[in-house]
Design a protein around this nucleic acid. Structure first.
Lengths: 230, 230
DNA sequence: CGAAATCTTGACCGATCTCAACTTACGTGG
DNA sequence: CCACGTAAGTTGAGATCGGTCAAGATTTCG
């Protein structure tokens, strides 16, 4: 556990205030919500939930990173997304009355706030804006999932990789250097390919002067226009 | 327009009562909602919305079928899903404040009820159960989208096709005969492949005594166990 | 610092896409 | 209601992207 904070409750309070779905509320309302949550801490490699389990809680990430992935009928993994502080998960099992279809695993030491179904429903009744925020978040995820699915079957790995790098580059990092937020193995899984192919395609992009691999996790985008056309 | 009903308003009323997100309401509440809607009719081939357009309405399908599809960066189409009476769409542009990313096109003559953003928000405030229903629906779609994306990159076309047929077969159709709800061209697009490959894979499944193609749109499942193992 | 995981590079193979020609199905209008 | 034309579906041959297996290099983390 972090040296900066011995009290998970404290982390929890920080957590709520950072979550987009709650950040429009007044401080005293946040405090009220905070009292409804429980705090969980996980260590690197721990599992938060696994496919097939039932659940009735929304998990809000306060510190750390969580890998959300699926396992196909054939036993292959696919990384769906990585949660960062302020993100939430568990919503599927929460709203559609069924079991988890994916796995959630801590990538590092992690603090999580949980909010039980009943409590969340009460909150949504009391503050309709919360429901709207969650709907907005769902809409974004749905949008992303459908776009990804479409890219998987319409674009080549090269293109998917280039688009991914461009999207990474959009968020800040003024110097057109992007930092991969995950291992290349995970990146391969996320982009629906293999580490070998990622390695080769990055090399290909580099040979074509579109990028420069500065280190394992750092890539400089040399030609955004060119990347967009790959 | 159908001979059975000259009045689109009438269609609209029918529509509301069939929509899962409203069907827990009392008749007089439905009447109230009905007054908030406008009715649109489309002919086969007409476009309801296209990618890039903004929108502030939820569209609820009363009669007909609507094809929802995306177009990739490279210009290839992918069919996301087909709306049937009672289904709704338009939610992405509605909840995330951005533009449509997909296209909606009537596959036959179609009647649609629209509900404007403001009206929907009022309804959700007044009847929190509506928000919960929409959340449940979103959760299901997200679930489906993520599963599809995963299958695209982890399963072969053969397997995706077999799983699709099995899922079709689950819903009723006692006689283990399934009726394809779309053309094979659309099916190919939906499953992320080409018509040629669909044709060949169906043939392959037939040669292996797993299915029997009775007509263009009708397939008999001969061996569900076998299909599941493809 | 060392073991284990990640990453890279090479060679090979196979699933599926593409292009092309032909056949079949269907909806549109006479 | 039928005929016609366009769209959908089928079949074949060829090309290729990217997955698999294997071995070696490098990084990461305890």
């Amino acid at each position: 556990m972090s040296r900066n904070c011995h009290d998970p409750q404290e982390k929890g309070r920080v957590c709520i205030s950072k979550v987009p779905i709650f950040n429009h509320l007044e401080p005293d309302q946040m405090e009220e919500i905070h009292h409804l949550t429980h705090t969980i801490t996980l260590e690197r490699g721990d599992t938060l939930y696994r496919a097939g389990e039932t659940s009735d809680a929304l998990y809000i990430l306060s510190t750390g990173k969580i890998r959300i992935f699926r396992v196909s009928e054939a036993g292959k993994e696919r990384l769906l997304h990585i949660l960062h502080p302020g993100d939430f998960t568990g919503e599927l099992a929460l709203f559609n009355e069924s079991t988890h279809e994916s796995f959630a695993e801590a990538m590092e030491n992690t603090v999580i706030c949980t909010l039980r179904r009943g409590a969340l429903q009460e909150l949504m009744k009391q503050y309709p804006a919360i429901a709207m925020k969650i709907l907005g978040e769902f809409a974004n995820r749905l949008e992303t999932a459908e776009e990804q699915a479409t890219r998987f079957v319409t674009e080549r790995v090269e293109t998917r990789l280039a688009l991914y790098l461009l999207e990474l580059g959009e968020e800040g990092s003024s110097d057109r250097e992007v930092i991969l937020p995950m291992s290349k193995k995970d990146l391969a899984s996320y982009l629906g390919t293999t580490p070998e192919t990622i390695s080769r395609k990055l090399q290909y992009l580099e040979e074509n002067r579109l990028i420069e691999q500065r280190s394992n996790r750092v890539i400089r985008l040399l030609d955004r226009g060119g990347l967009a056309k790959v």
